[in-house]
Design a protein around this nucleic acid. Structure first.
Length: 229
DNA sequence: CGCTTTTGACCGGCGC
DNA sequence: GCGCCGGTCAAAAGCG
């Protein structure tokens, strides 16, 4: 957790996988569009795919090699596309190993508050504190956007916002609205460059990506039809 | 009316 | 042991 606090630079270098490709000195006009994001970096964790339907292997990573300008609606496809870029950078592999070994620390730090609160909320409350903390895959990435919220195809509910130390910009906390899904994400803008949004995902979705399914359903139907022959 | 956002309070971890 | 800090809860307000 300490890696995340302190100043913005520290926040930009968490212990879990985090990637930021240097901001391109080009395409500022496109960035001015409200609904578009300049993706500086993206990656996928080593866990099962966020969207069950995504053709991701368990060991695959995602990383944008070159900055891409994408409509907000294409965010999930960006992750998918980036994940298919097979030759992962060495740095990425190192980062994932870091994640596998050290993610517990980060997750623990993240869950510290919840365990206490859940205890209070659940009355008896010792159910969770007694058991081992689940390791939750986390990854973060930066995007340049005027919007804090990236449309990644999932629905999120904001459950908190906190001012973080040494940062003028508050950090927002979101949770996936799916009943059985416990994925969370944090969103914060860099103090040094407020046009950059740092999004940290924690956990893995255990349900299909609704918007992606919606978009893919015609294609799937067609494939189903064609497969009969 | 149901869902989402806002916001102050609360809790546990960690450093000193 | 104490205080700071990040993360979460939950009531109230807002919104479509």
């Amino acid at each position: 957790m300490e890696n995340l606090q302190g100043d913005d630079d520290a926040h930009a270098l968490p212990s879990f996988p985090y990637f930021a490709v240097p901001s391109p000195p080009l395409a500022p006009p496109i960035l001015s569009s409200d609904d578009q994001h300049s993706t500086l970096a993206a990656l996928q964790q080593q866990q099962p795919p966020a969207c069950n339907n995504l053709p991701l292997g368990p060991d695959q990573l995602a990383a944008t090699v070159a900055p891409m300008i994408l409509p907000a609606m294409d965010w999930s496809s960006l992750l998918r596309q980036a994940s298919l870029m097979s030759p992962a950078l060495p740095g990425l592999q190192e980062a994932v190993q870091m994640d596998q070994s050290g993610e517990n620390d980060g997750a623990e730090a993240g869950g510290s508050g919840s365990s206490g609160k859940e205890k209070a909320a659940k009355g008896g409350g010792k159910g969770r504190s007694g058991k081992k903390k689940m390791s939750r895959p986390r990854f973060a990435f930066q995007t340049r956007s005027v919007n804090d919220i990236l449309d990644d195809g999932y629905r999120w509910r904001k459950y908190g916002q906190k001012a973080v130390k040494n940062s003028a910009n508050p950090r927002s906390y979101y949770r996936c609205t799916h009943h059985t899904c416990n994925v969370k994400k944090q969103v914060q803008r860099l103090a040094k460059d407020t046009s950059i949004v740092v999004t940290t995902y924690e956990g893995v979705h255990n349900h299909p990506c609704e918007k992606l399914m919606e978009a893919l359903s015609p294609i799937l139907k067609q494939l189903q039809f064609l497969s009969q022959f």
